[in-house]
Nucleic acid binder design. Structure first.
Lengths: 216, 216, 216, 216
DNA sequence: TATGAATGAGTATTCATTCAT
DNA sequence: GATGAATGAATACTCATTCAT
């Protein structure tokens, strides 16, 4: 179910000689630390509320040294947002394409949506709250992904209705919004001790979306 | 159902002589325009992304002149957030205290929650996304309101379970989170043409929360 | 003969009521001081070698306060360059259009060229040495003026040849270059005590260009 | 007539064994490339407008690697300026000391002055426009060379007057300035396609300085 | 009420330079 | 000989805020 996370430019990892791989690995690892720090700070204070100094301090590094790893704060946000949105669509596509009954698909979709909140919450939260701060081009690309995700989800509900698995009067668009809103709630509860365990959210949210609160 | 809105300096409105009242009214009206502008700009760019210049420009006013109306940007945020959160709790308290069956209460609560999004979306959205930027004191107060709101909502679900109206295995806390997440979805869809009409959201969200998506 | 200097936006000076005029005057005067300071610093250290701090210090002002008067260092350079190039073309056009014999026109042209070096040397020098640092648009405009000036000057020589006043084998293009190079020499000798008095340069340069060094 | 150019570490070239010489040659060649790149970049953007990164990029080299070839940007400028001013004085000294009539000497001096613009324009232009950015010591030395050059040139004119070859009322100082200004015009026309061929400038400038524009 | 001028601290970013490898 | 990583100071510019008028 699309665990993934972000394994940056690992491509042809084995093609390179060991030594080179090691060096590359070191550099990549450091780079990852830097982007991680950016994600954390962005998630904590918001993109505009976070300064490059904040990021540097967290790395015990000089402010300007960051620019060795990314060309601008904007670019860092872009990288974080892309990683934050990654896998959502792919995972959902696999689920939608699968053979399972509609109800199971919804359950799988909830799990697919919530897992990244456990894996890399700072990336996802930054994507959710600060994607509007992205520079034009990236905003558009990332926005397209979002819309694709929503369309898939809406289709999932619509197909459930068509298959007779969901109520015939179900408003697929509304259901899609409720699904996303519900799942993204996990983003607001981040980092605090008050957070519910993820598995409880996954099960609970799926039950609610499928069966609702009322007795039958 | 609790229209309210923010009629800020309503206090002792009638205590003052008519003339004075008129002048006060003018002043108050201007003041309102200023806070409105702040809310709009905060909602558009986020608190940290918005500058006092942005606010002043929207009012066709000089940057420094704003400070005649509020003592600091922080204070403006505070005022906006307070207005953004106002009525939510009062409305929900009235509903919870009422005699209606649990299902009807949920429907009423959805309406109570979504109405402010129609009335003063910029205030609500600023509250939702930027309350963490509030200065300590205000953040705590506003946080207390939030927690009170959540507690009320959770109680509403719990009482429904106890009364046999809701599934006995319903996780009231999870249901509360889903409720809020679902309803706050209205905030993300703001301002764009793609927004769904409010009444469709109210009905659809309530149906989903109560009956779920699956056929019975 | 090239009175000018730069009397910025003095337009319809008398149309406005006295009071307003006074205030406007004050603002304009301050603005002028700021641009003057920029011109001086640019002339002294070159555009890239000069920092906005340098400019501010010279005005006993805070660095950021400069931006009340111009929107960017680039813009300040543009204003300085425009003022530095102003009047050159107009003056030369008047001379070229006039009825005087070719030799007298050259003399007048030398005076026209050198006068701004006396009036506002920092502006002219900045234009001469740093116009290439101008942002695209302004560079083009200012470059067009330069080319127009050169074309006029070359025509002046060419017409002198045609009229029989100048040697028939005179290369007008080369003569134009020599003229400009010679006159711009005044820019290199700026500010230092070793500067020759302007009138001596005017007379001497004109004599040389017309009669050369050799005995007849 | 003083072709020269800069064969920097020519000293004790032959003292070393052939093999070493070869290696040294390689090193020297690389070194030359580096200084060449610096000269080009300085000429293009001005000393302060050029960054060490610009230089490194042009060499497809890492920024820090430059410091293997020069100890500081200042030092690179110094080397470029010294090479830019080299030979001017020596060449002129030879001409002044020679037996030719004054007019011929002027012609020779024009050629002497313009040749380096063909040989190593980036060096000469950097010297002309950025020598003021040199560190104190070098600036003084280079300034002394300049003054010596001017003095020689002025003497050349003065001796021409004394010898009756030049007009008795010729202002030698003014003539010297005109000479230099005229010849340095070649520096402004650099790199662009609009440049005149050097030989045309040499002949034309010399004619103008000697005979002037007017008919006799 | 409001403006225009200014401040002082802060922002992202660039730079020349260093140094272990 | 050269690289990659880093530094520390400087850069242009923005910001919230103040205050005399």
């Amino acid at each position: 179910m699309a665990p993934g996370g972000l394994k940056r430019p690992t491509t042809d990892e084995m093609a390179k000689p060991a030594r080179r791989n090691d060096v590359e690995g070191k550099r990549a690892r450091r780079r990852r630390q830097v982007i991680d720090a950016a994600a954390t700070v962005f998630a904590e204070k918001g993109y505009h509320g976070a300064s490059t100094r904040d990021i540097a301090e967290r790395l015990q590094m000089q402010q300007g040294s960051l620019y060795y790893y990314f060309p601008s704060k904007d670019a860092a946000l872009e990288e974080v947002c892309r990683a934050g949105v990654a896998d959502f669509v792919e995972g959902l596509e696999r689920i939608v394409a699968g053979p399972a009954p509609a109800g199971d698909k919804i359950r799988a979709a909830v799990a697919n949506h919530l897992e990244p909140f456990g894996d890399r919450p700072d990336y996802v939260r930054t994507f959710l709250f600060d994607r509007h701060a992205l520079p034009r081009g990236a905003r558009r690309e990332v926005g397209a992904l979002s819309r694709r995700y929503e369309a898939l989800l809406e289709r999932l509900f619509a197909e459930g209705v068509a298959a007779g698995a969901f109520r015939p009067d179900l408003d697929a668009r509304v259901a899609m919004l409720a699904f996303i809103g519900t799942c993204n709630m996990a983003a607001m509860r981040g980092r605090s001790g008050e957070a519910l365990p993820l598995h409880r959210m996954i099960a609970g949210f799926a039950d609610l979306i499928l069966a609702g609160a009322a007795v039958r």
